[in-house]
C-alpha cells in the first residue's frame, strides 16, 4: 500500500503530520513485537545472574557472562563443528543437485520422466519420519558420532535438484545448440555454461542448504555423543540442560554468541537474500 506518496497537497500539514506519527507508531509497535525477545536476550546477557534470578532487569552491566561462556563452555567448539558440517553439506548439495538437475534438463535417457517423478515424490517424505531406519543405516556404516553422520545423508536433496532444474530450464535452447555445434561435451557445457549462467539460483541453494544444515536439531541429537562433533543447536540444548543453577546470564550470552554472527550475515546480505528467496518461490 502506498500510503504516503499520493498525499494530496491540499491536506493541512498538521493532519499529515498526525498521520505520519500514526504510521511510525504502528511501525514501532510491530518492530517491538519482533525484536523484543532479542532485546531481552541481549540485555540480560550483560546482567549478573544474581540479579536476573531475583527477577530484576537491571544491574551492573558487564561482559562477564560472555567471558564465562567462552572460557567455561565449549561454545566455540560447537560453532566450529556447525560451520564444518554446514559448509561440507552446502558444497556437496550444490555439486550433486546441480549435476542431477543438469541430467533432467539436458540429457535424454530412458526413464527420465519416471525418475523425475520419483524425485518429486521424495519431497513428500518428511525426514523426521525416517529417522529410525536412517539411524540404523548410519550406525551400520560406522558413522555415529562423527562429522560425516551429519553430512552424508544430506549431500543431495530432491528439493535442490528441483529448484536448479527450474533455473536450468531458463537457459536458452540456442545456447545449447551453439555449444553442440562448437563440440562441447556435457561436462564442458555443465561446467562452463550452465553453472555460471544459473549462479543466482546456485548461491540461493547454497544459502538455503547452509541454513538448513545449521538449523538441524533432531538428527545431530540422535547421532552425536561428544562435544567434539556436536553442532551448535544441540550444544546450546546441552548447555541449557546441564545448568542446574539457572545461570541465565551465561545461557543468554551463549545464545547471543550463536545468533549475532547469523544476524550480521543476514543484515549485510539482506538484499541479496531477498532477491534469491523470491526467485526460489513464486512471484
Amino acid at each position: 500500500m502506498q500510503l504516503v506518496t499520493n498525499d494530496h497537497v491540499s491536506k493541512p500539514s498538521s493532519a499529515r503530520r498526525l498521520k505520519k506519527i500514526g504510521q511510525y507508531a504502528f511501525l514501532i509497535v510491530l518492530m517491538l513485537i519482533v525484536v523484543s525477545p532479542f532485546l531481552l536476550g541481549f540485555w540480560t546477557s550483560f546482567l549478573p545472574t544474581s540479579q536476573i534470578s531475583k527477577g530484576a532487569l537491571w544491574g551492573k552491566l558487564s561482559l562477564a557472562n560472555y567471558w564465562a561462556a567462552f572460557t567455561t563452555t565449549p561454545i566455540l567448539r560447537y560453532l566450529f563443528n556447525s560451520i564444518v558440517i554446514a559448509s561440507l553439506t552446502t558444497v556437496a548439495q550444490v555439486v550433486f543437485c546441480s549435476m542431477s538437475a543438469y541430467a533432467f534438463v539436458f540429457l535424454k535417457f530412458k526413464g527420465r520422466k519416471f525418475l523425475f517423478y520419483a524425485f518429486l515424490a521424495t519431497m513428500m517424505l518428511p525426514f523426521e519420519a525416517e529417522v529410525i531406519p536412517n539411524f540404523m543405516t548410519v550406525k551400520s556404516m560406522g558413522l555415529l558420532n562423527h562429522f560425516a553422520v551429519m553430512v552424508v545423508p544430506f549431500m543431495a536433496t530432491a528439493f535442490g535438484t528441483f529448484m536448479l532444474r527450474q533455473s536450468f530450464l531458463q537457459i536458452p535452447k540456442e545456447l545449447k545448440e551453439a555449444a553442440d555445434i562448437e563440440g562441447l561435451n556435457h561436462w564442458q557445457f555443465y561446467y562452463r555454461i550452465t553453472l555460471p549462467y544459473s549462479r543466482i539460483s546456485i548461491v540461493t541453494l547454497a544459502a538455503y542448504s547452509f541454513l538448513t544444515s545449521w538449523n538441524q536439531y533432531l538428527w545431530p541429537m540422535l547421532t552425536t555423543f561428544s562435544d567434539n562433533f556436536r553442532p551448535v543447536q544441540d550444544g546450546l540444548r546441552q548447555l541449557q540442560s546441564s545448568e542446574t543453577f539457572n545461570n541465565w546470564g551465561m545461557i543468554q550470552a551463549s545464545a547471543c554468541i550463536v545468533v549475532i554472527p547469523t544476524l550480521i550475515v543476514l543484515f549485510i546480505g539482506q538484499h541479496y537474500f531477498k532477491a534469491g528467496l523470491n526467485e526460489g518461490s513464486v512471484k
Binding site: 560453532l79 566450529f80 560451520i83 549485510i268
Partner: peptide
C-alpha cells in the same frame, strides 16, 4: 551483485577462520 556476494563470502570466511582458530587452539 557479484561484489556483494564476494563480500559476504569473504566475511563468512573471516568468521570461519576466527572461530576455527579458537576451537583448534582449544583442542
Amino acid at each position: 551483485k557479484q561484489h556483494r556476494i564476494i563480500g559476504l563470502l569473504g566475511l563468512l570466511l573471516v568468521f570461519v577462520l576466527i572461530v576455527s582458530g579458537c576451537a583448534i587452539g582449544h583442542a
